[in-house]
C-alpha cells in the first residue's frame, strides 16, 4: 500500500491500534465458519440462529433519525417452522450465526417413513423423515437432484428442481383429442402424489410439473 492516508471506521478502532478495514473484498460469510454477525454485517440471506432455531434473513433495514439512535430491523424466517418474525437491534449488537449450508444431493428411495438421499461427490447417505420434506416428496423419483439445506449436520429443507417430469400411473380416461384448456381431472403419478391435469392426459403419459406451485405445466415427451 503506497497511499499515506487510510480511512477507517471509527467506533471499532481505538487510537494507536489502527487496523485497516478498507481494501475489500472480504471473505464471503459462506466460505468460512463465523460464530456471530454484528449489525454492520446484517444483510439479506444471512443464516442466523434465534432461540436455538435456524433462520434466514429475508430483509434487513437500517433506520436512523438524523440526530437519534440507529435501529436495525431484520425479518427472519424460521427454517424449521417457516414462521417469519421481525427483530430489532442496536448498533453493535450481534446475532448468532447458524451452521447452515446447502449441498446438492441425489434422491435414492423411500420406505414411506424415511426418504434416502446420497451426496454424489462423497457417496455419503442421508435419511430424512417425511415430516421434514414438506411437499418435496411429491416430486422425487430415483435420481432426482435436490438442493438440501443442512443445519448442524442435519437436513432441514429439501428443495427439488423448479420443474420435474413425472409419469402418470392412474387417471380416468379422458376424451381423446379434447385439448380444450381449463378442463382438468386428477391424475396420480409414480411418486404417489396427485395433480390436476388436462383431460387429454392418459395413463403412462409424462407430465411436467412446477414444484413451486404444485401445478401441471405441460405434457412431456421424455424425462
Amino acid at each position: 500500500m503506497t497511499a499515506s492516508l487510510r480511512v477507517l471506521v471509527w467506533p471499532s478502532v481505538p487510537p494507536g491500534r489502527f487496523v485497516l478495514r478498507g481494501a475489500r473484498p472480504s471473505v464471503s460469510a459462506e466460505s468460512r465458519m463465523v460464530e456471530s454477525y454484528n449489525t454492520s454485517q446484517f444483510k439479506k440471506g444471512l443464516k442466523v440462529q434465534l432461540d436455538g432455531q435456524p433462520g434466514i434473513v429475508l430483509e434487513s433495514e437500517f433506520r436512523k433519525p438524523g440526530k437519534g439512535q440507529a435501529v436495525y430491523t431484520l425479518r427472519i424466517k424460521n427454517l424449521l417452522t417457516g414462521n417469519v418474525l421481525v427483530k430489532s437491534y442496536r448498533n453493535g449488537d450481534k446475532i448468532d450465526a447458524a451452521d447452515v449450508h446447502d449441498t446438492d444431493l441425489q434422491y435414492l428411495y423411500n420406505d414411506s417413513t424415511l426418504w434416502h438421499f446420497m451426496d454424489p461427490d462423497t457417496f455419503e447417505q442421508y435419511e430424512v423423515p417425511k415430516e421434514a420434506l414438506g411437499d418435496a416428496w411429491k416430486y422425487l423419483i430415483d435420481g432426482t437432484k435436490v438442493d438440501a439445506t443442512f443445519w448442524n449436520g442435519q437436513v432441514i429443507v429439501i428443495t427439488p428442481p423448479a420443474h420435474v417430469v413425472l409419469e402418470v400411473t392412474f387417471c380416468e380416461p379422458g376424451a381423446r383429442g379434447n385439448t380444450s384448456a381449463g378442463v382438468t381431472k386428477p391424475a396420480t403419478t409414480e411418486t404417489g402424489a396427485e395433480f390436476k391435469v388436462p383431460i387429454f392426459i392418459d395413463n403412462g403419459d409424462l407430465i411436467k410439473v412446477d414444484t413451486r406451485t404444485g401445478e401441471y405445466v405441460e405434457r412431456a415427451s421424455s424425462k
Binding site: L5, R6, L8, V9, G16, F18
Partner: peptide, 19 residues
C-alpha cells in the same frame, strides 16, 4: 451522541497516531 465520524490516519509520521 449518535454520530460516528470516520477517521483518517496520516501515516507520514509512521506511528499511526496522527489522525
Amino acid at each position: 451522541t449518535h454520530l460516528d465520524p470516520m477517521v483518517v490516519v496520516d501515516e507520514s509520521r509512521g506511528d499511526g497516531r496522527d489522525y
